[in-house]
Design a protein around this nucleic acid. Structure first.
Lengths: 148, 148
DNA sequence: GGATAATGGTCAACCTGCTTGACTACCTTG
DNA sequence: CAAGGTAGTCAAGCAGGTTGACCATTATCC
């Protein structure tokens, strides 16, 4: 495969990813959840199944635990999560989603589904499924399984 | 298509995009170009075919012209581009790539090709081509044609 | 069991990249 | 040629991240 072909593929992939991020964000805002940024979505995904500690969250987001702690401050202040004592480790605190956090997560799901439906309208649903299978095989850390 | 399926597709897409960005960046650094960030790559792509003004670059990157101007300062200081007087408009300045800027752009191409070849090793080259076609159809602003 | 090291979390200071606002120089339109 | 629009820069401020230091708790190892 030629370099220029790889570059075209890369450019298309990054463009689609950027637009998807934007559309999900817009969709979430349109559903009434303000003051939430794309980074929060990645955090919610890690928090959803039973919560996580700040350190775990930091590892998942690829930032320092200080940055993760600040992010948690923010989503707690905005009512999307809360800090609870950690069962079995008095040093740690378990960060869990509130009901509002779950609502926001579901809104993100709907927004993502909406964006993907727009693709299906262009290429057909079968092709979109094919896309999903291809990306799932290519994705780092093996096939991606959403945690929510 | 179910919401959870759309979410899995989205997660895989964003994961792949993130990893691709990382791999291209690493590849560029490994080829001896330090102090460049992913955002510079998007700038280079706009500058490559004949240069661009700061305002055009700002529009392409989706930032203010002040931010674009700062970015140009940086890549000029690092030797990747230079400001030339604009033919036909004394207010404007044409930002063009230097030879080193072109070298860096080619290095990014090679790094992208390398990353894509890694995918072909997993799914086969035919599948990767299929992926490129699908993404090209889905990408915003119609099929993406790289400018370099 | 108790000293020592490792881990979870926070506070504080700083850095970087971007934004808003104000301004100058030049172009365009009547 | 006057009046308004456009290209670009300067300056100040903000937001989100980093590094470094620190305390409380837990794990390790004679």
């Amino acid at each position: 495969m030629q370099n220029s072909e790889a570059m075209a593929l890369s450019a298309a992939l990054l463009a689609v990813a950027g637009e998807l991020t934007q559309r999900i964000h817009d969709g979430v805002v349109a559903r009434g959840f303000e003051g939430v940024r794309p980074a929060h979505g990645f955090a919610f995904a890690r928090l959803a199944p039973g919560g996580a500690t700040v350190t775990e969250l930091a590892a998942h987001l690829g930032v320092t635990k200080q940055a993760a702690s600040q992010l948690v401050d923010e989503i707690v202040r905005k009512g999307y999560a809360e800090r609870r004592p950690h069962p079995g480790d008095a040093r740690a605190r378990l960060v869990v989603l509130t009901e509002r956090g779950w609502d926001c997560t579901r809104a993100a799901e709907e927004a993502a589904a909406e964006a993907v439906r727009a693709w299906a309208a262009v290429t057909g649903e079968a092709e979109v499924r094919k896309l999903g299978r291809l990306l799932g095989r290519i994705a780092p850390y093996g096939p991606v399984r959403p945690a929510w």
